[in-house]
Design a protein around this nucleic acid. Structure first.
Lengths: 210, 210
DNA sequence: GTTAGCATGTAAGGAGTTACATGATTTT
DNA sequence: AAAATCATGTAACTCCTTACATGCTAAC
């Protein structure tokens, strides 16, 4: 088995390249945006990752032929990458898996940012998984807060209080998103029932009303 | 120069041991509490860190002599560590430094959790440094949000919106804390002026009214 | 013509994790 | 007597960063 570890970074790259072929430098900027923009990813991470994906046959660089149609022509030396068939397959596969690897702290943001390429069912599974994870955390925090009370100083206490509040807010955020997705899901099923098309693999997309 | 890198973990250990001598296993639990309790620190990190500190002469294990006065006597094989004079010195020194190393994402929480061992001036410097850092982040986020609008999908946008909101809330939290510290600082100066004692190196502490 | 930003990469190293290996003590 | 949890450590490995090395192109 060659697949072994997934790596958030590789998934993020695959996800971005699915929309638009890009070269590393630009990819980095989009990646940083996608990941909330703090914690700027370094080239020392990005280029080796591109290399790995390229070696694995998931992406290819459009070497010296086929200049990007819309953009500033000329300027070689840029390696514009795009997904191969294998890459698309792997991406699609990775996007439908849920499990802890989807809703853990390090992965959730990337998975969320790629929701547009998924269907409502997957989105709901991931959002609910994340919600459950955070609810567990909340439980732990509240329990240990009750246990440690008085044994820690003001500042540690304040830090815990603030941490708790942040998690609570994130849960509330998720609740809102879950509601929205459920509505979208209902609308989707209604649509599918009405039209005779049994529905392909195309993403649900839609929901123009945020 | 032997000092080289500081390491958040080592500072956290020093800070906890300053209050109470402890053995590794217990230290880990307190450490996890202190760091918000998610992201449980592994033994594979903790014990080597204790080793390093021990080798550097900053902490010592009270080997087989002097059983902990208050606690469950008996049970050897536990390495209870405490700060050496050097360790206390290094801790005090580390606690008064500000600079990015104090208010960066990875360090701020630990620094904050150790505020009880600092004076108001240091606390204010760090809180304000952190506030400035976050304000910069906010600026970047808002700018890039304005630039990318329409070029990214709903979900990426929602993620950015949520990230922005979280940072805004943290800034508000800091503002509250800064106000409180300013009040404490004023009270402190007044107290110092009134009493003839010029004030030693003891932490400002106090502030029973949260 | 020189500075700033675009563009790609490599090598060394830091900071942590997982998995392994071991054994004592407490609870059921 | 078995299971849980306390307690300490090591080795291999992962993921990422920093610092280095290189060169092209746009703007001032």
């Amino acid at each position: 088995m060659v697949r072994s570890r997934a790596g958030v970074l590789e998934l993020a790259i695959l996800g971005l390249l699915h929309d638009t072929p890009m070269h590393g430098y630009e990819l980095r900027k989009r990646l940083n945006l996608m990941l909330g923009s703090f914690r700027a990813l370094s080239y020392g991470s990005l280029y080796p990752a591109l290399r790995t994906l390229s070696d694995g046959g998931l992406i290819v660089s459009l070497g010296s032929d086929a200049p990007p149609p819309h953009a500033l022509a000329g300027k070689r030396a840029r390696n514009v990458y795009e997904l191969t068939a294998d890459g698309k397959e792997r991406l699609a596969e990775a996007l439908t898996t849920s499990g802890p690897a989807a809703w853990d702290d390090e992965n959730f943001d990337v998975r969320f940012a790629l929701f547009a390429q998924t269907d409502v069912e997957t989105r709901l599974r991931i959002l609910e998984g994340r919600r459950t994870r955070l609810a567990e955390r909340l439980d732990q925090l509240r329990t240990s807060a009750a246990r440690t009370r008085e044994r820690v100083d003001e500042y540690t206490l304040e830090l815990q209080r603030h941490g708790l509040e942040q998690v609570e807010r994130e849960v509330a955020w998720l609740d809102g998103l879950i509601d929205r997705e459920r509505d979208a899901g209902r609308a989707d099923r209604r649509r599918r029932r009405t039209s005779s098309r049994p529905g392909g693999t195309e993403p649900a997309g839609g929901s123009e009303e945020p």
